[in-house]
Amino acid sequence: MSVSMLQEMLDAGRFAVTAEIGPPKSCEPEQVRKLARMLKGSAHAFNLTDNQAANVRMSSLASSVLCLQEGLEPVMQMTCRDRNRIAMQSDLLGACALGVHNVLCISGDHQVFGNHPQAKNVYDVDPIQQLMIFRRMRDEGMNWGGEPLPQPPQPFLGAAANPFADPFEFRVARLAKKVSAGAQFVQTQCVLDVERFQRFMGYVRERGLDEEVHVIAGVIPLRSHKAALFMKNKVAGMCVPDHIVDRLRRASDPKEEGIKLCLETIDSLKSIPGVHGVHITAIAWEEIVPRLVQEAGIRP
């Protein structure tokens, strides 16, 4: 049984496409709707980030519902940074009640990166424990405290994986932990270093994890070598090979080169066994997503 189209696609062995929508920094539902209308049909589901980079934005739940209203399937991201286990369970119940079933459990960027570095973080639970809690609610029909839920929520549980963080040897073990905690799909950090990602996937298959979880590989279209350098130097847990920076720097039309590069990446990812889809993060360049999926031949 599947609770969302994303799950249906993935379970049916179809190559899934997800894309990211960053909610606005103010109360502008029209912004979400505009993006939603533009991106409709370009992916199976859309991630609504949860105060990304620890900046206050419209909540991922509200933005998810706006997407639903526009006929898009949302993936609601939920960080451990801002909620304790009480709020998490409450938000999950609320999300599923409103028809938001894809939930991505993540630790979240540390608040020092955002616009409220003075904030106290929560981290009552970590993403693995978050998955354990949500799975119990769904599969055992009880909240983490042990009280029965007459109508349990039906989430499709996702997690993040970063093959480019350290220690490398442990990244697959961490994925295995997430899978055993309940992750049904994982979205990875953006792949720019395909070689390292292939090595990662090798270990994933070695442990048979590709049979247990849908790996959706992250991709990012880069607009310039400056964007590449920013990712390399400023974004935690990113790996940007020098040849990519050079290639964008030398290109006469960096934007086109970035698109080409992204298409090539998608192409190589498609051929890696165990990769069941791609997740496109086009921050502030969402309008490129329809073209990307069209030219990559992965339009749903």
Binding site: H110, D126, A165, R174, K177
Partner: peptide, 21 residues
């Protein structure tokens, strides 16, 4: 751990350093 994680390093761990600093 800056996030008090109980199950391994988050995606911000690089070269043995924390993403925070």
């Amino acid at each position: 751990c800056a996030k008090s994680l109980l199950n391994g390093p988050c995606g911000g761990s690089q070269n043995g350093k924390c993403e925070v600093s």
